[in-house]
Computed example of a mutant assay.
Amino acid sequence: MKFHKILIAASLVLASTLSISAAEYEVHMLNKGADGKTMVFEPHFLQIAVGDTVKFIPTDKGHNAETIKDMFPEGGNQFKGKINEEFSVTFDVPGAYGYKCAPHFAMAMVGLIVVGEDPANLDAIVNARGPAKVKDAFAELAAMVGQ
């Protein structure tokens, strides 16, 4: 009986330690950002730890967030929220994740989440094919890695 109580106490300590170490971030989907730019994610760049969660919030209507094909690490989570849907993603695989708002992709409504310190797939994101506006946005985002 005493061993059972010790095991339960140890499990509770471990569970509380794990929940404290993981962080949750919010990304808002906006028609206009604080800097005056239109059709943006705010923040549009995050550098987080493995196990952290990002909550995507459609602050303004008409937006979604979804990974872009070939812009996430091998084995990483693909995600695709519905229009006007709030949802959360926990990132368990290190690397860079490029994402977009599907209705406003041509307007370069994109963002970048870097999980861990050294995203091996960052060059693939920067060199991906796409509209010039989107390529410029990802080059700007990639320059923020490690800052």
Rank of each mutant, 00 (worst) to 15 (best):
M1T: 07
K2I: 15
I6K: 08
I6E: 15
L7C: 06
I8K: 12
A10S: 14
A10V: 09
S11F: 14
S11Y: 06
L12A: 14
L12N: 08
V13K: 01
L14I: 14
A15Y: 00
S16I: 03
I20E: 09
S21V: 13
S21R: 04
S21I: 09
A22Q: 07
A22S: 12
A22L: 03
A23I: 03
E24G: 07
Y25P: 08
E26T: 13
E26H: 03
H28I: 11
M29H: 03
M29I: 05
M29N: 03
N31A: 14
K32E: 14
K32L: 08
G36E: 13
G36W: 06
K37I: 12
K37T: 14
T38A: 09
M39P: 10
F41W: 02
H44S: 15
H44I: 06
F45C: 10
L46N: 13
A49D: 15
D52C: 14
T53C: 04
V54I: 07
K55I: 13
F56Y: 05
F56L: 09
I57R: 00
I57M: 11
P58C: 10
P58N: 03
P58L: 04
T59Q: 12
D60R: 00
D60Y: 02
D60K: 02
G62S: 06
T67C: 10
T67M: 04
D70Q: 02
M71R: 03
E74A: 15
G75L: 03
G75W: 00
G76M: 01
G76Q: 00
F79C: 12
K80P: 05
K80H: 13
G81Y: 09
K82I: 04
K82S: 10
N84I: 07
E86V: 08
F87V: 09
F87Q: 06
V89R: 02
V89I: 15
V89A: 05
D92R: 01
V93N: 09
P94M: 02
G95F: 09
G95L: 10
A96S: 13
Y97T: 10
G98D: 05
A102D: 13
A102F: 13
A102T: 13
F105N: 06
A106H: 12
M107E: 15
A108R: 00
A108M: 08
V110H: 13
L112R: 00
I113R: 02
V114K: 01
V115Q: 01
V115S: 02
G116I: 10
E117I: 10
E117F: 05
D118Y: 06
P119W: 05
P119L: 08
A120C: 15
A120I: 12
N121Q: 07
L122D: 12
A124W: 02
V126I: 08
A128W: 07
G130I: 14
A132K: 11
A132R: 03
A132G: 11
K135P: 02
D136S: 11
D136I: 04
A137D: 12
F138D: 14
A139W: 00
E140S: 02
E140V: 00
E140M: 02
L141R: 00
L141A: 11
A142L: 05
A143Q: 01
A143C: 07
V145C: 09
G146V: 12
Q147I: 14
